[in-house]
Structure formats: structure tokens, C-alpha cells
Nucleic acid binder design. Structure first.
Lengths: 148, 148
DNA sequence: TTTGCTTATGAATAAATATGCAATAAGGTG
DNA sequence: CACCTTATTGCATATTTATTCATAAGCAAA
């Protein structure tokens, strides 16, 4: 079991379980045949940005809310609220906290119309390869972020 | 010093300082003439939802990003360090960790001058609705983020 | 294969935080 | 005012997490 696989398993466990502390996480990993020391889990948690906070009266390990998951194509349209531009830049407004996922999705499309993307919380900034391409870029976005 | 006032002071301190652990917070409170025990701070942190996470290589106490803390109008100016622009974009530099709060505050103002905001850790990127509006946008920012 | 360098890991323990308990403060009522 | 209830606080310490140090593992080059 290498580090990468272990960290994926940690992500999976925290998505499926309410985990109170690192010791509990260690036990759940053991249940998944991943034997690891608490020290290593502390490091993994630091690396993965996992936080421990008290919600609903109990301490729990969780990913911060701005650490979003992958988007499947069919769902991306649901998350996009609006597409606007000015003379040089295209801006996509998303559901709160979903900008990162939408930005990543656009990145993976590798459109020659897009020079780069920057994602905040609910806003994705698109830098066009040329300002002349902005209308084409907006059409491209509408076409690829549709709800089908 | 009652509990409410103390928790407001905690919020203020975390907004103005990079605080590594509860002991540091305790010392900063003492510097503000608030004498309190670590146990009480632990309880305050749990109540306020304060988390401790490793960012940029150091552990820091902070409010989670989804609870960035409402900004009251009079306090937002304290968090903004500088406002700059180039021909196409306006950039606001903030106190460490406060970009999200400042960005959210600007979003809620719903200015027709702003197409969108992108917030990192200590930098907010503002996209104007038109590059011609940048001087007006900068004036708007100074007026609405002043210290009064 | 060996060697050298870098990265990862775990045991032990230091550091940090949370909690039990008792004392006291605060709030409300008669 | 007295009395009762609830909330808060701090001391002591239990619990949890992070770090140090030594070693193992991984990787590339010779």
C-alpha cells in the first residue's frame, strides 16, 4: 500500500464515515487492510488539509468545504449559474464552493480557446487565448456545460 | 470581561494575526488585558468553530472558509492592505487568510462595476464589467472599504 | 549488482488540546 | 435580601496530535 493509495482510501473513509479522531481513522484503515501508524496519519491529515472541528456537538475529521470532488460531464451544467465577459476576460459564476471543480473540468477539455483558468469559491475566471475569441469561447462554454 | 466580549476579541486577534496554537492566542489575549485559561480557550474555539490546519507549512488557528466570519462594514478596512490595478484587472491585498471574507463582502455589495471576484489567501482579484470602469471601481473600493 | 541520495515510516515522546470536577459567577424569582 | 438554577471558569489531568530520531524503502546511476 503506497502513500497515494492510502490517501485516496482516507478520502473515501472520511466521505463515508463520521470519524472523531485519528485513532478512529487508524482503526477504519486497519479494517480496510491498511496498517499504518498514527504518526503517518497525522502527516497525511496535514498534507490533505484535513481539519478537526466540533460540529453538532462532536469533534469530527473532515475535509474543508472548499476541497471539492471531481465533476462528471452530465452534472457540470447544474453547477454553472451564469457566464459573462468584459473586453478581456470571461467569468463563470457557479454554485457556492463549486468553482474549483468547474475550473478543473474546463481544464481537462483542453480547448485551444482557453489560455488558462483561475477558480475561487463561486467564480471561475477564464483567460482567452485571444480577446477576439471571447464570443466563440462563450459559445463553447454554453455548448460544453449544457445539462445533457 | 464577559464571554461574548472575549470571543469578539478572539475573532479580532485571529483576523489580525497569524496564530499557531492556543497558547499563542492566550498570550495575545493577555497582551490585550484578557486573562483566561487554556481550557476556556479550547471551549471558545470549539464554540466558534475555529480550526487548526496546516497551510503554507505552518499550523494556524483560523475560522473555516465556509465560516469566514461576516465582515461588519466598519471593520473591513482593517483587513485591506492595498488596492492596485493594471489595464484590465484590479487586485486587493488583504491580511493573511482574509481574502475570502473581503471578496464575499464585495460580492454582497452587488456593484454593477464588478463582473466577478476571485479570492486566494491574501489576494482578491476583481474583474471589472468593463476595463473603462477601473478608475471608478478603485474609487468605489476605497469608499466602501474605508476604516470608518 | 552496489552505491548514494531522497522520501517515507514508525516508535517514542513532546506538544497541544479537550475534559472531569469543583468552585464560583451570573441570572432569575419571590 | 435569600434562594435556586444555570452558566462559566480554572486546575489538574486525560486525550489527541505533532515532531524527533532512527531506519526502511524507493529510485536512479554506475
Amino acid at each position: 500500500m503506497n502513500k497515494h493509495a492510502r490517501q485516496l482510501k482516507i478520502r473515501e473513509i472520511l466521505q463515508l464515515n463520521s470519524v472523531g479522531n485519528q485513532h478512529e481513522l487508524l482503526q477504519l484503515l486497519r479494517d480496510s487492510a491498511v496498517k499504518v501508524a498514527q504518526a503517518t496519519l497525522s502527516r497525511d491529515c496535514a498534507e490533505l488539509g484535513i481539519i478537526r472541528s466540533k460540529t453538532d456537538g462532536n469533534y469530527r475529521l473532515r475535509f474543508p468545504d472548499d476541497n471539492a470532488g471531481r465533476i462528471i460531464k452530465g452534472l457540470v451544467g447544474i453547477e454553472v449559474l451564469a457566464v459573462h465577459s468584459n473586453e478581456t476576460t470571461v467569468v463563470i459564476k457557479t454554485l457556492p464552493g463549486r468553482a474549483h471543480g468547474v475550473g478543473s473540468y474546463l481544464d481537462q477539455l483542453r480547448s485551444p480557446l482557453i489560455l488558462g483558468t483561475i477558480a475561487g469559491d463561486d467564480t471561475v475566471l477564464l483567460i482567452p487565448t485571444s480577446v477576439e475569441n471571447i464570443p466563440a469561447l462563450i459559445s463553447y462554454i454554453h455548448k460544453n456545460l449544457s445539462k445533457n
